[in-house]
């Protein structure tokens, strides 16, 4: 049975879908960076380049739009995978009226509540209790959802993480804490911010099932996540997962000094683990896809992203009259300067 399932997972169609999704995220994020440099995107923006296997692997392990998901500010790929209109995602990042939040959120605050994606939060670690609350709600209603709570290695040091782990274990909340360990808390390397760099161990004192897995090989990662999601759904208990990956670009678009915290040599070595290049090798080796096909897909996705950008850029900025909308559900706040 297990073998049959494995083959099914790795069908050529599935492999192509993984490939398309990872490449789409990369091209989307690269376009965001270009737009940022052009001044079309402002504020803080954090892209997912290099970490695509993590988002795609998780997406295929959950029941998309049924399970809950919450993350910090590296939040573009999750809604794109869940089927949110990419024009609305790009428009939000550009602060336009067609954005998911009509330009009120921006890059760090993308949400698609209907699809179970609860954002999109800017305070490092602050969203983690909220993730606990999502899992609490599904448990309270006797549903079999799981909550994916993504956090960075930097966030793993915040006090509320430990508070939430304690309550998740105490109350058997079906939440999977997914630490996207990209080795840097903004510009501070893991060994300078964590007393014990093996972050996966932090679940153990709470009696939470814990493990460290590779997040750069989408196939092995997807299988690991599927096992973890299935266990969590079945047992309705928390799981603590340290996902090892690497971001290829800066912490955010405003981070132009990567050499302050890592060397070019280190980056070059990390690039050799590029999850997209790794999948391409597998696709070639298994005769699933030719180089020519890959190039054609790349061209198609690049054009698609270009069209998304053009449409988003055509969206107007929100009208000034909207500034008071949605402060409250049923009233306006005090007005005027």
């Amino acid at each position: 049975m297990a073998k049959a399932k494995l083959e099914e997972i790795e069908s050529p169609a599935m492999l192509e879908e993984f490939y398309r999704q990872m490449l789409f995220i990369r091209r989307f994020e690269e376009k965001c960076n270009v737009a940022y440099r052009l001044g079309k995107i402002g504020g803080y923006m954090h892209t997912y380049v290099g970490m695509e296997a993590t988002a795609v692997g998780i997406h295929h392990a959950i029941k998309p739009t049924y399970d809950y998901m919450i993350t910090a500010y590296r939040d573009h790929p999750q809604p794109l995978l869940l089927g949110t209109d990419p024009v609305k995602v790009m428009a939000e990042i550009m602060g336009r009226s067609d954005g998911m939040s009509r330009g009120k959120g921006g890059s760090m605050h993308v949400y698609d509540i209907e699809r179970g994606f609860f954002g999109g939060w800017g305070i490092v670690g602050g969203h983690i209790p909220l993730g606990g609350g999502l899992a609490f709600a599904s448990k309270y209603r006797n549903e079999d959802r799981v909550t994916i709570c993504l956090l960075g290695d930097g966030a793993a040091n915040q006090g509320v993480v430990f508070e939430t782990m304690n309550m998740a274990a105490l109350w058997d909340l079906p939440i999977i804490f997914c630490i996207e360990n990209n080795e840097f808390a903004m510009g501070t390397r893991l060994e300078y911010h964590a007393a014990d760099t093996e972050l996966y161990k932090r679940g153990e004192p709470f009696g939470i099932k814990s493990e460290r897995i590779d997040g750069m090989d989408v196939l092995s990662f997807h299988k690991d996540m599927q096992r973890i999601v299935d266990w969590t759904r079945e047992n309705q208990k928390p799981y603590w997962v340290e996902i090892m990956n690497y971001r290829f670009l800066g912490h955010g678009a405003a981070d132009n000094d990567r050499q302050l915290y890592r060397t070019k040599e280190e980056e070059d070595a990390a690039m050799k683990r590029d999850p997209i290049a790794r999948l391409e090798e597998i696709l070639l080796k298994r005769n699933v896809m030719t180089r020519e096909k890959m190039e054609a897909i790349d061209e198609e996705l690049t054009d698609q992203v270009e069209a998304i950008y053009e449409q988003a850029d055509a969206s107007p900025f929100p009208d000034a009259s909207e500034v008071y909308d949605n402060v409250y559900t049923d009233m306006e706040p005090e007005k005027g300067h």
Partner: peptide, 15 residues
């Protein structure tokens, strides 16, 4: 902080 955050998350999910 932790349990208030859990309450907020639960409220977002409709409780």
């Amino acid at each position: 902080a932790g349990f208030t955050g859990i309450a907020i998350g639960a409220a977002m999910a409709g409780l």
